[in-house]
């Protein structure tokens, strides 16, 4: 009889420990879900994934660094599913850190339908990501083009003077996605 009780005791203890392990599983699941916002915060703070702020920076007031030139290069991509032509009007500009610059990009809808596209920016090297400040960008909102319509779109930006000294060339890349397909 004492044997029986010992067995039941042990079964209870096993169930208790098993249920405690479920808390560990739940903690791991919570960790998995929280990785998504953590990744976003991490990337925004460090700029490691090259994604610039998707909203307008404050107009810059302090002095322009006249001692330094930074070359800013532009590249463009159109992702599958979007039949647009899209390219920068200039391949690169030389800027003084702190000096506001305006460059132009051109997109043309090659289809006979109304199409909305969304441009997604990426900066290389990633140590420059947080120092590229945009005042106005076609990437802030979706762009809608009528059939065959061509549109010249401005980008107003400056490179922050606290850009690390060793960075001499900054590449700003835009990939245009089909925004309708992306949402559906």
């Amino acid at each position: 009889m004492g044997m029986m009780n010992a067995n039941e005791e042990r079964q209870k203890a096993n169930r208790r420990l098993g249920l405690k392990m479920l808390w560990l599983v739940a903690a791991s699941a919570l960790f998995a879900v929280s990785l998504v916002p953590l990744y976003d915060v991490f990337c925004t703070v460090t700029g490691l994934n090259g994604k610039t702020e998707n909203s307008a920076a404050q107009e810059f007031q302090s002095a322009v660094d006249e001692q330094r030139w930074v070359k800013v290069e532009f590249t463009s991509n159109v992702m599958p599913g979007l039949s647009w032509n899209f390219h920068p009007k200039q391949n690169s500009v030389m800027v003084r850190p702190g000096q506001i610059e305006t460059v132009l990009f051109e997109a043309k809808n090659m289809t006979n339908e109304v199409v909305a596209g969304q441009a997604v920016p990426s900066v290389s090297p990633s140590s420059a990501t947080t120092h590229v400040k945009k005042i106005e960008c076609f990437c802030f909102v979706r762009q809608e083009l009528q059939p065959g319509e061509s549109k010249v779109m401005p980008l107003r930006f400056y490179v922050s003077p606290d850009l690390p000294q060793k960075v001499e060339v900054v590449t700003l890349s835009y990939a245009f996605f089909n925004a309708v397909k992306a949402v559906n």
């Binding site: 699941a29 998995a32 879900v33 990785l35 998504v36």
Partner: peptide
């Protein structure tokens, strides 16, 4: 680690069928 994998493929599933954009740069 298994819950992390399960989470990742679940996000993939919702990206594929329920309009989320965990892994879609456009969204």
């Amino acid at each position: 680690t298994i819950p992390v994998l399960a989470g990742a493929v679940t996000m993939l599933l919702t990206d594929r069928h329920f309009g989320t954009h965990f892994f879609s740069a456009a969204g």
